[in-house]
Nucleic acid binder design. Sequence first.
DNA 1: GATAGTTTCATACAACTGTTTGAATTGCAA
DNA 2: TTGCAATTCAAACAGTTGTATGAAACTATC
Lengths: 220, 220
Amino acid sequence: MASDHTRSAILTAAERLYADRGFSDVTLRDIVAEAGVNLAAVNYHFGSKDELIAELFVTRSIATNRERLRELKAAEEQGGGRAPIEVILRALVGPTLRGCLGPENQRSTAARFMIRASIESVPPIRRIKNREIDHLRKFAGAMRRALPERSDVDIYWGLNFALAMAHHTIRESERLAKLSEGKCDLDDVEDVVARVVSVATMALTAGKAEPKAPPRVAAR
Amino acid sequence: MASDHTRSAILTAAERLYADRGFSDVTLRDIVAEAGVNLAAVNYHFGSKDELIAELFVTRSIATNRERLRELKAAEEQGGGRAPIEVILRALVGPTLRGCLGPENQRSTAARFMIRASIESVPPIRRIKNREIDHLRKFAGAMRRALPERSDVDIYWGLNFALAMAHHTIRESERLAKLSEGKCDLDDVEDVVARVVSVATMALTAGKAEPKAPPRVAAR
DNA sequence: GATAGTTTCATACAACTGTTTGAATTGCAA
DNA sequence: TTGCAATTCAAACAGTTGTATGAAACTATC
């Protein structure tokens, strides 16, 4: 095994370059130059370029998923197996938003990498995202326990909308800042989380079973 | 000028191939083979591959935008310059959703192309999307008129969330169908529109004028 | 210090990419 | 028909890409 020096140098360099310049115009040669290693090292250590990208993405997303589940579990244990829907939603979107938003100048390489992954969606990353369903099912289960009177369909739509707001806000944060002329403060992450959770909660609790029911005020 | 035969044959073939196989693995040679024209024809008629993609996307998105504005204008005229927020939101997300969702087997090439564009987000398309801000501003203006007591910040967030739900649902429709084991019917487009509009309306009308009580300062 | 296994290296490979070129062809007006 | 521009064509170009190779350098074990 020796030391992972070369291997981790590649990972570090690749993540930084992808974060800065996107997937489409970073080549293996750019990466090995940045890492100060030989071109063949990538295929030796990772098998292929796609597997390198996959490893980068998997590492980051299992970190996020672990944090999500940690928050979910803590909330459910505290509530005796049933957590309030707001807290569940916060556990779902909080880690992702916190990991990708915040003041630009202090955004980590990992954060910028995940934003890129969210925007460009290259094949190896798409393949991994498709295997994320089991993870989401755990949240669907928790949401069902929190809102037992709600139909499965409504639960899934609520989950979908919560993820939609979080991911879209990350993807299009620049555009939203420009559109609002800076009025929407995307650096105030906790405010963004609160807004997403608030709307998603309303989506899941308003009216009876019909989504077209009159708006009902929810906790904010 | 002659006839646009070659030019439009390229456009048709390109849109079909991109719709079927995505941007990343369709080459110019694939396109000209499908269109039955010479390789150089693409550069002759469009200048470059990126300009071809851009033309395809622009054509489709101005069609959608025109439909959006048509619905918006109709609604505002009927209401004497002020339309209900639900109708504005419906004009915003309706055309996009109707253009991309619906029974898979009867989805048009244009629809499938726009789904691809939404998922893959290739450079020339991103550039065009960035110029869409003026278009969105018109909706922000209409929303402001519909909800004059609401702050600009809330308006922009509501707009952002409405687009988020629509676009994310399109992008991830397959995953949502799988996650919900088919319980969420993504072919019932009008139901999807109603759900998105409903949630976005709640986001914009719930609570007081101040959904974000300002106890929070810049401190972090 | 020889050996076996791992890792690094320079280099070549093979294929594919979008684009350009310049000649051939076509269509149309005078 | 002639002339001229617009269009089409086959071919080549120029570059890049990820990957494979086989020898060299290293490392640890005996």
